[in-house]
Computed example of a mutant assay.
Amino acid sequence: MPNTVQEAKRYLDNAKEILREKAKKEDGLYQDPKYVKLAGHAAYTGVLVALDGLFEEKGKGRKDVGWYKDNLSKLDKKALASFVAAYSTLHLAMSYDGNTDANVSMAGIKMAESIINWVETRTAVA
């Protein structure tokens, strides 16, 4: 299972690199929404990879956000709230909308880190 956490962290590192190297931050705004979208998608994918590892999801099929919410609601309400916030920020605001506000992206990255670290501590105990 640690390999899924490592893989999740790799996605997160890629998201940070995309923002740092390609999105061109100027006066608190990223200049290219295309790279904000890519970074949001990478970070959100990292969250999903970590959660798939936690739930020991073997299938490669596509799961909707409700599947993750249902599983988290049975496990930890606080983690569920974090996931809902991360979904809204990473998937909707960044990936879909390309929100160029650097504060939004940084908040999303922090949420992703928090969830991945939470998964890491849960899997270390298990």
Results as ranks from 00 to 15, higher is better:
residue 1 M to T: 08
residue 91 H to G: 05
residue 103 N to L: 14
residue 112 A to N: 03
residue 59 G to T: 13
residue 65 V to E: 12
residue 100 T to Y: 08
residue 57 E to M: 05
residue 49 V to Q: 04
residue 115 I to T: 03
residue 51 L to N: 02
residue 65 V to Q: 11
residue 67 W to F: 08
residue 16 K to G: 05
residue 55 F to S: 00
residue 92 L to F: 11
residue 3 N to A: 11
residue 58 K to H: 09
residue 104 V to Q: 03
residue 20 R to M: 09
residue 91 H to P: 05
residue 124 A to E: 11
residue 27 D to S: 15
residue 82 S to D: 15
residue 117 N to T: 10
residue 15 A to C: 09
residue 113 E to H: 04
residue 118 W to I: 00
residue 55 F to I: 01
residue 108 G to T: 03
residue 41 H to V: 08
residue 108 G to W: 02
residue 43 A to F: 06
residue 99 N to M: 08
residue 87 Y to W: 11
residue 17 E to H: 11
residue 24 K to S: 13
residue 25 K to T: 06
residue 69 K to P: 02
residue 126 A to F: 07
residue 14 N to M: 13
residue 26 E to P: 04
residue 83 F to V: 04
residue 2 P to C: 07
residue 13 D to Y: 10
residue 23 A to G: 07
residue 123 T to P: 00
residue 64 D to L: 04
residue 100 T to C: 14
residue 80 L to M: 08
residue 36 V to S: 06
residue 12 L to H: 05
residue 75 L to T: 06
residue 63 K to Q: 05
residue 50 A to Y: 00
residue 52 D to T: 00
residue 4 T to A: 12
residue 17 E to M: 12
residue 48 L to I: 13
residue 9 K to G: 05
residue 20 R to N: 13
residue 100 T to A: 14
residue 86 A to I: 04
residue 8 A to Y: 01
residue 66 G to H: 10
residue 50 A to I: 01
residue 94 M to P: 05
residue 11 Y to A: 07
residue 56 E to R: 12
residue 113 E to W: 03
residue 84 V to H: 02
residue 113 E to F: 03
residue 118 W to S: 01
residue 68 Y to Q: 01
residue 8 A to L: 03
residue 31 Q to K: 15
residue 18 I to D: 03
residue 3 N to G: 08
residue 35 Y to G: 01
residue 121 T to P: 01
residue 112 A to M: 01
residue 3 N to Q: 13
residue 17 E to T: 13
residue 66 G to W: 10
residue 107 A to N: 13
residue 102 A to I: 06
residue 99 N to V: 10
residue 32 D to R: 14
residue 63 K to F: 04
residue 39 A to N: 07
residue 73 S to H: 05
residue 77 K to Y: 06
residue 68 Y to T: 02
residue 69 K to L: 05
residue 51 L to M: 04
residue 22 K to D: 11
residue 54 L to T: 01
residue 1 M to C: 07
residue 70 D to R: 12
residue 13 D to T: 12
residue 20 R to P: 02
residue 88 S to N: 10
residue 126 A to G: 10
residue 46 G to P: 00
residue 29 L to I: 13
residue 106 M to H: 13
residue 115 I to F: 03
residue 107 A to Y: 09
residue 125 V to L: 11
residue 89 T to H: 04
residue 101 D to N: 15
residue 34 K to Y: 15
residue 42 A to R: 08
residue 53 G to S: 00
residue 110 K to N: 14
residue 90 L to Y: 05
residue 91 H to V: 07
residue 47 V to C: 01
residue 25 K to E: 15
residue 123 T to Q: 08
residue 53 G to I: 01
residue 119 V to Q: 01
residue 54 L to V: 02
residue 122 R to W: 04
residue 88 S to M: 09
residue 30 Y to D: 04
residue 46 G to Y: 00
residue 72 L to A: 03
residue 83 F to R: 03
residue 105 S to P: 04
residue 92 L to T: 11
residue 11 Y to G: 09
residue 114 S to K: 14
residue 82 S to A: 14
residue 111 M to F: 10
residue 84 V to M: 09
residue 14 N to F: 11
residue 77 K to V: 07
residue 36 V to H: 06
residue 74 K to H: 06
residue 93 A to Y: 12
residue 60 K to F: 10
residue 77 K to F: 06
residue 23 A to H: 05
residue 122 R to A: 09
residue 31 Q to R: 15
residue 44 Y to P: 01
residue 83 F to D: 03
residue 107 A to T: 15
residue 51 L to D: 01
residue 115 I to C: 03
residue 110 K to L: 13
residue 76 D to K: 04
residue 10 R to T: 14
residue 111 M to K: 14
residue 47 V to H: 00
residue 73 S to A: 13
residue 74 K to E: 09
residue 112 A to E: 03
residue 61 G to Q: 12
